[in-house]
């Protein structure tokens, strides 16, 4: 039997089983009680309110705490026992450090003094977001909506969640970035000089009205960065988790077609590998790289 025939046979058997299951299990009709979006709902676990602001501990805060603890713990642990001949984990951390230092920071901020100043911030952004994204793919007992009874102990069921899949977190990081690069730009060129530098070069001979129009566009684009930077991270992680949720069985449950699970599960596996192996790191890299680019652009001699 040729390889081609084997593949066809395999795929054929797979679909035959799928159809068989479809026939046997049938369609139970749409499931109204299953609310997939509740996976992302933030129920306050410990309610705290200070000066009218809701500072309740919830799932997202737990993930932030985990990300903060893991980032600090892992990095200081590795940093405190740097060997001359590194093991594999140290080598990976060194690689990431080198990436943040030379590729992200120095690659986008030509001024060495400025790069030195902003390197800790950019590297922390990268590692913090990376750890946030990665723990988002560990099943943790955080689903308080559905509890499992283990020897009388009510344990929340295992679930996936990511702090970065909540808009507030990328948004506040983006705000920090946004104010930082404007402040650096004003510091480098003065307030008027900085605003002038928003105009692209080559417009010196243009009439003032057209210049003003372009300035407005540029100003809007500056504000658009607030949305693009935060939503890029948030939407990527949220979409990834939604895909995993649906492919991992959510769709089959929702539609009441159990046999669909057989079709979606391999896809869930594929998406999981994609998310963990690529998207989590890529989004952290993109976020910190764009921050470095904004900082470099705001302080560059010419626009």
């Amino acid at each position: 039997m040729t390889r081609k025939a084997k593949i066809f046979l395999g795929v054929g058997i797979y679909f035959a089983i799928l159809i068989l299951l479809l026939v046997v299990l049938g369609n139970e009709g749409k499931n109204e009680s299953f609310q997939p979006q509740n996976e992302f709902k933030l129920d306050p676990w410990i309610s705290i309110e200070i000066a009218g602001i809701d500072l309740s501990i919830n799932k997202a805060v737990l993930y932030l705490l985990l990300a903060c603890g893991l980032t600090i713990g892992a990095m200081t642990f590795i940093a405190s026992r740097m060997q001359r001949e590194p093991n594999k984990i140290q080598m990976a951390v060194e690689l990431a450090y080198d990436l943040t230092r030379n590729n992200i920071t120095r690659g986008n901020i030509p001024d060495e003094r400025l790069a030195q100043r902003w390197f800790p911030f950019l590297a922390t952004l990268f590692f913090f977001i990376w750890f946030s994204n990665m723990i988002g793919f560990l099943p943790l007992p955080i689903n308080t909506e559905h509890k499992i009874d283990i020897f009388g102990l009510e344990v929340p069921s295992l679930a996936l969640y990511a702090a970065t899949a909540n808009l507030s977190i990328p948004l506040v990081l983006t705000l920090v970035v946004w104010f930082s690069y404007h402040v650096e730009g004003i510091r480098a060129k003065g307030f008027i000089g900085y605003l002038k530098s928003w105009l692209p070069p080559g417009l010196e001979s243009m009439n003032p009205a057209a210049k003003a129009f372009i300035f407005v566009i540029e100003a809007v684009s500056q504000f658009a960065r607030l949305i693009s930077l935060s939503v890029r991270l948030f939407a990527n992680i949220l979409a990834g988790h939604l895909l995993l949720l649906f492919m991992g069985g959510g769709l089959a449950v929702l539609l009441g077609v159990a046999a669909l699970g057989l079709l979606t599960f391999p896809l869930a596996f594929f998406f999981f590998i994609l998310e963990v192996g690529l998207i989590a790191t890529l989004q952290a890299f993109i976020f910190s790289t764009l921050t470095a680019i904004y900082l470099g652009g705001a302080t560059a001699e010419t626009h």
């Binding site: 809701d54 500072l55 919830n58 903060c68 980032t71 600090i72 200081t76 800790p120 507030s168 977190i169």
Partner: peptide, 25 residues
């Protein structure tokens, strides 16, 4: 966006930044 979560984020990110830039990096 929730303001409380944003404050938590700022706080925890700030702590992380401080420790990493003082100790790890």
């Amino acid at each position: 966006p929730g303001l409380g979560l944003m404050i938590w984020t700022l706080l925890l990110f700030g702590i992380t930044l401080w420790v990493l830039s003082k100790v790890a990096f």
